[in-house]
Design a binder for these strands. Structure first.
Length: 293
DNA sequence: AAGACGCACAACCGCCACCCC
DNA sequence: TGGGGTGGCGGTTGTGCGTCT
């Protein structure tokens, strides 16, 4: 028994969007917001499938999209998140403000895969390419979260915050803290803050349990906070995502902003958020220098 | 100069989870 | 409670463009 198509395909345009179509979509969403995608095309006067409109808006027209090249820091963050989550592009995208899942997926397939291969790393397993696949391989915190384990609607929320220039270098996955949860299990969804509801076992957590041989009764927490503040001259304590030489060169060359990347990788929220950017167990800090012009 | 080739990325497709009646 | 509708996701394809021969 087949499903009915999401739209009347016979009367819809396909292929590249025209400027006029883009403008119609933008105008409509500006006026009415993102409502029902199924009815949107007709209401907006577009001969497009609702899904197509949604995709076009999310991946291309949304005003908060960053566009442009990925930075080294973003590269590394994607690699690390992928090593934890696998092909969960939407979750990874949630940690990279202004980036879309489609963009990250494409970037992974065209750039990062190759980059990892040239480093001698298998892009799927994040292990050395020449490492024989043995069942008794030493335990690694990497979560073998396969893409067919669908886990949706548990989106993490990005909290853009101002933060101090305190930072540390990107942690090795092996160094990531595993926070043993307290008895009360809480949702990682910021919208449900204080709800106190319990959540189902996450597939990554289940996988991690298998690997670690422990019972972990919470969700993987992947909070990221990014903040900007004027560069103070003395710079970043405790290292940086950038190499120190590159960092000092940039300091000298231009007035800069410090972009503080704080992320938390563990089994649950390890403590308070990065809003105050204070050292909290389970939080890691990175920084990048950007032009203030 | 032009055809072949490869790359980058926008867009599509099919599946699945959730919502609501 | 079950089933249809819808939104959202990951995988895949199509196409335009740049580079190479």
């Amino acid at each position: 028994m087949g499903r009915s198509p999401c739209c009347e395909k016979a009367h819809t345009n396909k292929g590249a969007w025209t400027k006029d179509e883009d403008q119609r979509l933008i105008d409509y969403i500006r006026l009415h917001g993102e409502g029902c995608w199924r009815t949107l095309p007709k209401a907006a006067g577009l001969l497009r499938c609702g899904k197509s409109c949604r995709l076009r808006w999310i991946n291309y027209l949304r005003p908060d999209l960053k566009r442009g090249n990925f930075t080294e820091d973003e590269d590394e963050l994607i690699i690390r998140l992928h090593s934890l989550l696998g092909n969960k592009w939407s979750v990874i995208a949630g940690k990279l403000p202004g980036r879309t899942d489609n963009e990250i997926k494409n970037y992974w397939n065209t750039h990062i895969k190759r980059k990892l291969i040239t480093r001698g790393i298998d892009p799927q397993t994040h292990r050395p390419l020449n490492e024989p696949p043995t069942a008794g391989t030493a335990l690694s915190p990497r979560l073998p979260y396969q893409s067919h384990h669908h886990h949706r609607r548990h989106h993490q929320h990005l909290t853009p915050n101002h933060s101090s220039s305190s930072s540390s270098s990107l942690p090795n996955i092996a160094e990531l803290p595993i926070v043993k949860p307290a008895n009360n299990v809480h949702s990682s969804d910021a919208d449900e803050e204080g709800s106190g509801t319990t959540t189902e076992m996450d597939p990554p957590v289940a996988a991690a349990e298998t690997m670690l041989g422990v019972h972990v009764k919470t969700e993987v927490n992947l909070e990221l906070s990014i903040g900007l503040q004027p560069f103070q001259g003395e710079g970043v304590r405790g290292g940086s995502v950038l190499g120190s030489s590159a960092e000092s060169r940039l300091r000298e060359e231009r007035r800069a902003l410090v972009m503080c990347l704080c992320w938390q990788l563990g089994w649950e929220k390890g403590g308070e958020s990065c809003r105050n950017c204070e050292r909290t167990y389970g939080w890691f800090r990175g920084s990048a220098l950007g032009s203030s012009s």
